[in-house]
Amino acid sequence: MENVIELKNVTKKFKGFSVNNINLQVKRGFVTGFIGANGAGKSTTIKTMMNLLKPDAGEVKLFGLDYKTHEKEIKERIGFVYDGNIFFEGLNLKDIKRIVAPAYKHWDDTLFDQYVEQFELPLNKAIKTFSKGMQMKASLAIALSHHAELIIMDEPTAGLDPIFRRELLDLLQELMVDGNRTIFFSTHITTDLDRIADYIAFIQKGKLVFNQSIHDVAENYALVKGELNLLDRDTEKAFVHIHRASTGFEALTDNIKAVKNIFGDTVIIERASLEDIMYYFKGGIHHA
């Protein structure tokens, strides 16, 4: 399978925060959701993909190309959406298009007009008068109008109302009908991902915990509930993190088979949601 994005041992250090040894491959033709708590390193990772940040060490390749020698070719093929508004606030959408469009060889005015109509965007009003949802739609219209093969989005659903969030997800799904297209987006609203993601990449404290198909995530992780007396130093090893209460324990495992072997029918095994996984990993890794 071909990788559209390839990060190899990417490390970037800031004061008091760092992203360490990230190895991440994003496959062509799929939607990859990038999850992690606030401050886990999602935006930093996305910025290295966009060459807004240069990693201290490691290699970043998009479409198999290097930013050093193919910067323009790479960016020509990317559509980007960021969390905040990055367009000149005082300008209207028509003028922003006038600035952005000439940058792309494959800009398609008809397509842009089509999105403007679909999203009901005003062309002659200043961007700063737009609501958060409208700003997002405007960014999206611009990101989608040059036939990008790869769409990179940093928290596109943050701050959107539930109705528009669904509309956005439906739209992304429509875009994926073109099998060549790849979407990579970060979010901390994990329910978005159940609907459209094929792969989940999970980052925690600057480290990539996993990058698996959503199917594998469901197969590999589970919530386990049982009595406290079942836990001892050996049995605890089967869990990523354990949450104890007077009524019993609840824990996340990444080894369902081992749990079944150890505990048999004495525990309840439930499907772990992405939110459960994020929550338990946040508790720290108590792994053998």
Binding site: L52, K72, K75, E76, I78, G84, I86, F88, A103, Y104
Partner: peptide, 18 residues
Amino acid sequence: AYDEKVETNILLNSLPYT
């Protein structure tokens, strides 16, 4: 005066310009 804003640099650097 416009370009000292971080957002402007993010925009310009995300577009196909070096």
